[in-house]
Design a binder for these strands. Structure first.
Lengths: 242, 242
DNA sequence: TCAATTTTCTATCAGTTGATATAATTTAGT
DNA sequence: ACTAAATTATATCAACTGATAGAAAATTGA
C-alpha cells in the first residue's frame, strides 16, 4: 500500500538534524487564545509521558493523543520532540526555581552576619533542604519529580537546563552554608564534595524509591512513613556536620 | 525498492511478543568453540553500547556491528534484544558478586563476636564500603558501572536481577553493621533508611559524576582527586554514625 | 570422507518513529 | 464582510527498528 508510484521519489532528509532543537516560529505580535491552550495541553501531556516512559519510549503520537491534539501541532509549537522536551524542562524548572528563591534570599541576607552559631547555621541549612526534600517526595504532581529524575538519568539536553536553574542554585546555597559550618575555604573540594553528597541524598529519595521500599518491606510512602524518612535523613546530615 | 510484488503478503506478527524474553535454543551437548567466541563478543559489545546509549537507543544492529558479527547472531544466541540485555546484567553481576563475597563472609564471622568496639565496627563497614566505592569509580571497564547505573534508571527487567544479586546483598551487609553501631532494632526503619542513604552515596559517585566535576571545576577524576573524594565521603559516613 | 549438527550470512518483513507537505479551518484586525 | 495571519487536520514520507526465513558455510563425530 505504500510507494504506489514506480518512479522513486527524491529522498529528502529532514530539514534539520533529528537531534538538534529547532526554532519554533511562534507568533511575533499577538497570541491567539486557542493556540496558547493547545500549547499548554501539549506541555502537560509531554511532562506526564516523558515521566512515565522516559524520553525515547514516549512517542510524539502518544503525547499528541493524550493532549487531544493532532500530531503536527507538536512540530508547530515546539519544533519537534526535543523542543517539547526542553520546553517541559523549562516549564518545571521555572516553577521550582521560583519556590526556591525566597529561601535563597534568606540565606544570603543571613549569611551576611558574622556572629552565627552552629545551631543557627544548621537551622538555615534545614530551611533550604527540607522544602526541597518535601517537594521531591510529594508536592506537585508526581510526574514532575519523575520527569526530573528521568532527565538526570538520561543525560538529555534538558538536563543541562535543569541543573543550571535548580541543581546548581541549590548546590551553591548549600556550599555557602557548609563552608561557614566547617570553617574551611568556601570553594575547596571538601566543601563541594560534602555539598554534593547532601544534595544527592535529597534526590535519592525519589530515585531510589523502589529500592527503599523494597528494603523496608513497605508497600508505599504514606504520610507517616514519609515523615520518618525526612527525619532520619535530616539527622544523618546534621550529625555528619558535627 | 521495497514491496516489489503487488500481491500483499500475509502479515505475520512476530512469533513471540517483542517485550518478553525468549528461550534461546542453545546446544545441549557439546559447545562449538567458535560459537562461544561470538557469544562473548556480543556480550562485550552489548555492555558497551547499553552503557553508552541506554537500552532503547542501543540498536541491535549497532551492537552486532560493534561485535563484528551479523544481526541474526544476536537472536540466535540470546533470543532477542531483551535476552541480551538480561545476559549482560547477569554477566556483570556474577563478577561483582564474586568480588563482594569475601567481604561478606568476613562481616558475618566478625559480627558473631559480642565484644566489638565502635571503632572495630566502623572499620568493618569501611572494609565493605571502600572497595565498592573504588570499583564504582575506576575499577573494571567504565562501561560496567555505567551499565549498572542505566539499568537502575531505566527500571528494566535487568534491574531486578542486579538488585537481588548486588544491591540487596550490599544493603543487607550494611544494615547488619549499622544495626550494631546504632544499637537499635536491626530491621527497623531507622537502620534501613540510613543504610540506603549510605549505599546511595556510593552509587552517587558514578551517577552524579558530571555534577560533581562541574561543581568542583575539575576536568576529570585522576588518582589524587579520587583519593580526596573517597576520603571526604568516608568521613561524612563515619561522623554521621557518631 | 560423510552425514548430522551448529553457526553464519543475505535478504526481507512488518511495524513504528519523527517529521513534512498541503489543504482546510479558525481567528483577529479592518 | 473581507482579508491576512494563525491554527488545525489529513495523508504521507523516508528512515529505522527488532525480528525471521532460508540457504550457505563451518564444525563435529563416525
Amino acid at each position: 500500500m505504500r510507494n504506489r508510484n514506480a518512479a522513486p521519489r527524491k529522498r529528502r532528509r529532514p530539514a534539520q538534524g533529528a537531534g538538534s532543537p529547532r526554532r519554533p516560529r511562534r507568533r511575533e505580535g499577538g497570541g491567539y487564545a486557542r493556540g496558547e491552550h493547545t500549547r499548554r495541553r501539549l506541555l502537560d501531556a509531554g511532562i506526564e509521558l516523558f515521566a512515565e516512559l522516559g524520553y525515547e519510549r514516549a512517542s510524539t503520537r502518544a503525547i499528541a493523543h493524550r493532549a487531544g491534539v493532532s500530531l503536527p501541532a507538536l512540530q508547530y509549537y515546539f519544533g519537534g520532540k526535543e523542543g517539547l522536551h526542553r520546553a517541559c524542562a523549562e516549564y518545571i524548572t521555572a516553577d521550582v526555581r521560583a519556590r526556591l528563591e525566597p529561601a535563597a534570599k534568606r540565606v544570603r541576607t543571613t549569611l551576611g552576619r558574622d556572629d552565627l552559631t552552629r545551631a543557627e547555621l544548621l537551622e538555615l541549612l534545614r530551611a533550604v533542604v527540607e522544602p526541597f526534600l518535601e517537594g521531591l517526595a510529594t508536592e506537585r504532581p508526581e510526574s514532575w519529580a519523575l520527569f526530573f529524575a528521568r532527565a538526570q538519568g538520561e543525560q538529555n539536553a534538558a538536563f543541562d537546563a535543569i541543573f543550571q536553574q535548580i541543581g546548581g542554585r541549590l548546590l551553591t546555597l548549600v556550599m555557602e552554608i557548609i563552608g561557614r559550618i566547617l570553617g574551611g575555604p568556601a570553594a575547596g573540594p571538601e566543601v563541594a564534595i560534602r555539598a554534593v553528597v547532601i544534595v544527592g541524598q535529597l534526590t535519592l529519595v525519589r530515585r531510589a524509591r523502589s529500592v527503599i521500599l523494597r528494603a523496608l518491606g513497605w508497600p508505599d510512602f504514606d504520610g507517616e512513613r514519609l515523615q520518618t524518612l525526612k527525619e532520619v535523613v535530616w539527622r544523618g546530615i546534621a550529625s555528619s556536620l558535627g
